[in-house]
Design a protein around this nucleic acid. Structure first.
Lengths: 204, 204
DNA sequence: TAGTCTAGAGAACGAACGTTCTCCCGGGAA
DNA sequence: TTCCCGGGAGAACGTTCGTTCTCTAGACTA
């Protein structure tokens, strides 16, 4: 039974790997189930046995990507910025800087194609409710994470500051995707530093 | 002959009106040429006589929307912020504030569905080169406009500041579309004020 | 009035889509 | 060996897409 479950999970992973690569690179509607089956090396019967319909696969793709994307970001920031729940005022700024450094690395990756959720939302947000939900959840989770990052600062409204940082993040991602310039991350980081600095402009 | 040309232009306008409404609301690939023909009240022959292929219509839709969107924004800002090429340091900040006020009105519109260019790029940017080009041109033109707006400020790099403001604009548009909260515009405006204020932090 | 040309309505076409079904092979049970 | 059955390969199905073709009715010209 364990072997059976392992095989099932491995097939599921292989399908999701192929789906993520193809959906993210070329868009969701541009890749058909047949091409996906070939890329995953799985029979159509197994494919539809694992995901009953394409929209189930699309939703699973977005959910898994959300989890991994945020985990990668958080791991990078934690490794770079220390644990930092203490009173050291410098640590939060370093962690926020680390967020944009992580973005810079992502933007320079050869397979970078912008935010998978913004792309999916623009393509299917009106039609597929699951896509809209997954996108909202992703952005909400990112906002919550940014709120945690800025909460040690004595900003009058951490959620507002987090929202503004999220604007910079999404704006930089979009600009990097459209213009192809990875320097967007640094430009956004500089803006973030100004916003963060303004909240702690009074060093005692 | 003039009558002939007028009819042709009127048909073209009607097609583009229908295309813009449908493409923007539901996505490009989600609306077929047949539905579009019905919505425009035009025969298929006329439709294909005016736009030889769907991608021509898509590109024309984006080009016309770009022109109108930027003209509307510029008109609103000009009406609100004065001409302001003088040395008055307050006018540029007012005009930048007006940009976000205009966004707030747009976000609250019942048919608001985010940035048509970001949506189209996410859907077809990899597949259709014309869409990618139109999107790049739109964002470049917006950036140039913002650069003009901030150039009266004594900022070390007006283009960098304009890029940062563009991040806020695109981030706010995206967030408003996904979360449905029109208040994004005000939150972005506050961030813009901080960025703009930092450049002129030394009032003589 | 007879002839010609335009344009509308929509049928038709080939391709591609998501999904299901059929056929067939190989490996374990009796 | 014989039966059985899960699974792979891909044909098939119904729909929808973008695009083209056919048919016809009416308006303008001689």
């Amino acid at each position: 039974m364990t072997v059976h479950g392992d095989i099932h999970d491995e097939v599921r992973t292989r399908i999701l790997d192929a789906a993520e690569r193809l959906f993210y690179e070329r868009g969701i509607q541009a890749v058909g189930m047949d091409e996906l089956r070939t890329a995953a090396g799985v029979s159509l019967k197994r494919l539809y046995g694992t995901f009953p319909a394409k929209h189930d696969l699309v939703e699973a793709y977005l959910r898994r990507r959300d989890a991994r994307w945020r985990a990668d970001l958080a791991a990078y920031v934690a490794a770079r910025g220390g644990s930092g729940t203490g009173t050291d005022a410098g640590a939060p700024a370093d962690r926020i800087r680390a967020v944009f450094d992580w973005l810079a690395g992502w933007f320079a990756a050869p397979d970078f194609h912008g935010c998978a959720f913004i792309n999916a939302y623009g393509e299917l947000g009106t039609t597929a409710e699951g896509v809209a939900r997954a996108t909202r959840d992703h952005k909400r989770a990112l906002h919550a994470y940014l709120t945690d990052l800025v909460s040690p600062l004595n900003h009058p409204s951490p959620t507002v500051l987090a929202t503004q940082l999220a604007f910079l993040v999404d704006g930089a991602i979009t600009a990097a995707a459209i213009s192809g310039d990875p320097a967007s991350a640094d430009t956004a980081a500089a803006a973030a530093r100004v916003l963060v600095g303004a909240s702690a402009a009074d060093p005692s």
